[in-house]
């Protein structure tokens, strides 16, 4: 039995934080299900975006942090543009992903790769100022152990000159590094 007052009370701060980060107000949601209905990936989710909104309304937002759905969401924004209550649904999903990372939630194995990719990506940008695609793909293979995945695609791409073998490094790398550090300071150095 869920004590709604307790959950709403305890979860209010979290819900407010998500609202703030997504620049929206999930209390406006009237649970019509347009978001889940139009979501191209709802079929693969454990709980749909409508239910995520409901969890937040009832102060159970932290449960949403454990949902696979937030990692399956492709941020295609179909939900957001269709929402009759003008809720930034995709933005809420994104805010939840950020929170899940910040709070060190265990990310479901099947989608742990997203985190690895994000880390690799941001690391690459931090070091070079731009993305080194081949490095990213290689890093992904190393970290996930899927050494042979998509090899069939990589080789022709290399041959067609689509993947450069060396990262391009911009001159303003120090500036980029400073941006990363300042952001870290401002966001509380949690990463």
């Amino acid at each position: 039995m869920l004590n709604l007052q307790a959950t709403i009370g305890a979860g209010r701060e979290f819900t407010d934080e998500i609202n703030h980060e997504a620049g929206t107000d999930i209390n406006r949601c009237y649970q019509c299900g347009t978001c889940s209905g139009g979501c191209p990936l709802f079929y693969a989710m454990d709980i749909g975006p409508r239910q995520v909104m409901r969890l937040l309304q009832t102060g159970l937002g932290e449960e949403a942090l454990r949902a696979r759905s937030i990692w399956i969401c492709a941020t295609c924004d179909t939900c957001t543009v269709r929402c009759p209550r003008e809720i930034n649904v995709a933005g809420v999903m994104e805010a939840l992903r950020i929170q899940a990372r910040r709070r060190g939630y265990r990310i479901p194995a099947a989608v742990r790769k997203v985190r690895i990719l994000t880390d690799l990506f941001l690391g690459s940008v931090r070091r070079s100022g731009r993305i080194f695609e081949l490095g990213l793909v290689q890093g992904m293979k190393m970290r996930t152990g899927e050494l042979l995945k998509d090899v069939g695609m990589g080789i022709p791409m290399l041959l067609k000159g689509k993947l450069s073998l060396r990262p391009h490094r911009i001159r303003g790398r120090a500036e980029i590094e400073r941006i990363y550090r300042k952001v870290q300071e401002m966001e509380g150095g949690s990463r």
């Binding site: 709604l4 409508r50 239910q51 009832t58 159970l60």
Partner: peptide, 15 residues
Amino acid sequence: VRGEDTLLGRPVAVE
């Protein structure tokens, strides 16, 4: 007050 939040699909209680 006891009931189901049918949108959550869970039993709830409100004081």
